[in-house]
Simulated scan of single mutants.
Amino acid sequence: MWTGPKQRFDDEALRRPPYPSPPPADGRTDLVQRYKEVKAEFPVVDLPPLETAYWLIKPRELVRDTWDEPKEAAQWLGEQLIGYAPRFASVSDRDSTRLAMLVGSAAERLGWGGDVAHGFYLERPSFLSLALVGCSPNRALPEVDCPLR
């Protein structure tokens, strides 16, 4: 779970892993510096990664909880949705039927090994990001271990 200023959430460079190879050392200084910054910051920054599975390389401290069963994880999602719903900027996002459908689909998706990610605008200019990431192993990043193992 992440909440914060929408402007910070929009800093996509810190939400994606750095390219596997750095720019040439004799290249543009600003590109070399930005690469170094992203390489150092991406693994530890609390911003939600653009690809949900990359939560698995984040520090353990950013993990809110773990569950053995998809329904338990979906229940946590439901609790967060209910808690934040009054702050959702969109009235339609507050609809209890819609929220229940999100929880049900999360349990189903986790059950077959998929990840779940949802984002909601809160009072301006805030944003809420919620993610549930499977790691036994993860389908998108099977080589990455669970952060709590």
Rank of each mutant, 00 (worst) to 15 (best):
Trp2Asp: 09
Trp2Gln: 05
Trp2Cys: 03
Thr3Ser: 15
Gly4His: 05
Asp10Glu: 14
Asp10Arg: 03
Glu12Cys: 04
Ala13Thr: 10
Ala13Lys: 07
Pro18Ile: 00
Pro22Ser: 06
Pro23Ile: 06
Pro24Asn: 08
Pro24Cys: 09
Asp26Glu: 12
Gly27Glu: 02
Thr29Gln: 14
Tyr35Asn: 14
Lys36Val: 10
Val38Cys: 05
Pro43Glu: 06
Val44Thr: 12
Pro48Cys: 10
Pro49Met: 01
Leu50Thr: 12
Ala53Met: 02
Tyr54Gln: 00
Lys58Met: 00
Pro59Glu: 04
Pro59Cys: 09
Leu62Val: 06
Leu62Gln: 15
Val63Lys: 03
Arg64Ala: 15
Asp65Gly: 13
Asp65Trp: 08
Asp65Lys: 15
Glu69Ala: 10
Ala74Ile: 00
Trp76Met: 02
Leu77Asn: 05
Gly78Lys: 11
Glu79Ser: 08
Gln80Asn: 10
Leu81Lys: 05
Ile82Cys: 04
Gly83Tyr: 05
Ala85Cys: 09
Pro86Lys: 07
Arg87Pro: 13
Ser90Phe: 01
Asp95Trp: 13
Ser96Leu: 15
Thr97Asp: 12
Ala100Met: 09
Leu102Glu: 11
Val103Glu: 14
Val103Leu: 04
Gly104Asp: 14
Ala106Met: 03
Glu108Lys: 12
Gly111Phe: 15
Gly114Ser: 08
Gly114Pro: 01
Ala117Arg: 14
Ala117Asn: 08
Ala117Pro: 01
Ala117Leu: 09
Phe120Lys: 10
Phe120Ile: 10
Leu122Val: 11
Leu122Pro: 06
Arg124Gly: 07
Arg124Ala: 13
Phe127Gly: 04
Phe127Asn: 06
Phe127Ala: 06
Ser129Lys: 12
Ala131Arg: 02
Leu132Met: 01
Ser136Gln: 13
Asn138Phe: 03
Arg139Trp: 08
Ala140Ser: 14
Leu141Pro: 01
Glu143Leu: 06
Glu143Phe: 02
Glu143Tyr: 05
Cys146Ile: 00
Leu148Pro: 00
